[in-house]
């Protein structure tokens, strides 16, 4: 029967693709749960080929918000987390999901807004005053709303501004539940303010009428940390390969590579690793 032959041909195709997939799965590779900012800023595109050339290890990055990335590791679906919300990270360690946490690098958050600056906050270096003014003037503000590191930082800044955001939010406060790039696209389309990490902003291509309106406040500090997922909780964690990536990130060589990453002559991340876990 001709259609039998067709079936067996299709079955062969299916089996072949299974086979090639299984072959790929046995490579020397680790899965890193990381954040949209490290991916969207292009840091991994720059750093991972260098690491691969040195060690032969493939690093597979799943880029999500910090909250999601930690949850992914809590299910045992990652070997490493590389994120930026220290309180959430320490909680993750306390719960026993992580082994040790190492500082890797920092950059800072910036408040982005429309050039015509409807809330009139441009030029101040007091981020909490700027937040309070935006709230009083009900100027459009886009929130990530996705439990990411940037979202956590934003919520913390509202608190430090003396604003109970759950009470104060209205039509002006737009919680979009999406990544950094999507939040910037939305802010651009709605002439809204938005808190962004500097790396994503520098590499973002669709700026339209947006610019940095507030920067330089020390409360805008943004620390990145890396942790190995606890192999005692999940025996499938590739502890050795994962540890080599951590060792590389905090080594003098890895730190120098991070410092060398630039866009248009601007450095995006500032290495500050110490060999001691926090």
């Amino acid at each position: 029967m001709l259609n039998r032959r067709l079936f067996s041909a299709l079955a062969a195709v299916a089996l072949l693709s299974f086979g090639s997939v299984a072959a790929i799965a046995q490579d020397r590779s680790i899965v890193v749960a990381s954040t949209t900012s490290t991916q969207d800023s292009g840091l991994f595109d720059y750093l991972l080929p260098i690491f691969k050339a040195k060690t032969g290890i493939d690093v597979k990055v799943i880029a999500q918000g910090t909250g999601q990335a930690l949850d992914m590791a809590r299910r045992g679906d990652a070997d490493l987390v590389f994120v930026h919300a220290k309180e959430q990270e320490l909680k993750f360690l306390e719960e026993g999901f992580g082994v040790k946490r190492f500082d890797v690098m920092y950059n800072d958050f910036v408040l982005i807004g429309p050039k015509r600056d409807p809330a009139g906050v441009k030029g101040t270096t007091d981020i909490t005053a700027a937040f309070d003014t935006i709230r009083i003037k009900k100027a459009p503000f886009v929130s990530r709303g996705d439990k990411s590191g940037t979202n956590s930082a934003e919520l913390k800044l509202w608190k430090e501004s003396g604003v109970d955001i759950d009470m104060a939010k209205g039509a002006w406060y737009r919680d979009i539940g999406q990544g950094m790039g999507a939040a910037l696209n939305t802010a651009g389309a709605m002439n809204a303010y938005v808190l962004s990490d500097r790396g994503t902003w520098l590499s973002f291509k669709n700026r339209g009428d947006l610019e940095i309106v507030v920067e330089g406040d020390k409360r805008l500090f943004n620390q990145y940390g890396v942790m190995l997922v606890n192999p005692e909780k999940f025996p499938t964690v590739k502890a050795d390969l994962g540890q080599s990536f951590i060792d590389y990130l905090v080594s003098a060589e890895g730190q120098k590579a991070i410092a060398n990453y630039q866009i248009d002559g601007q450095q995006l991340f500032f290495p500050n690793a110490s060999r001691d876990p926090s």
């Binding site: 790929i24 899965v31 949209t36 991916q39 969207d40 991994f44 595109d45 991972l48 493939d58 597979k60 990055v61 799943i62 880029a63 999406q178 990544g179 950094m180 790039g181 999507a182 910037l184 696209n185 651009g188 590499s203 973002f204 291509k205 669709n206 700026r207």
Partner: peptide, 24 residues
């Protein structure tokens, strides 16, 4: 798939990623 570069990135997830990078 997780949209992993060079491993599980497809046409559609690449389009979503480039959109989020503002690379319209």
């Amino acid at each position: 798939g997780g949209n992993i570069d060079g491993f599980t990135r497809t046409m559609t997830t690449a389009i979503a990623l480039e959109t989020s990078k503002g690379n319209l």
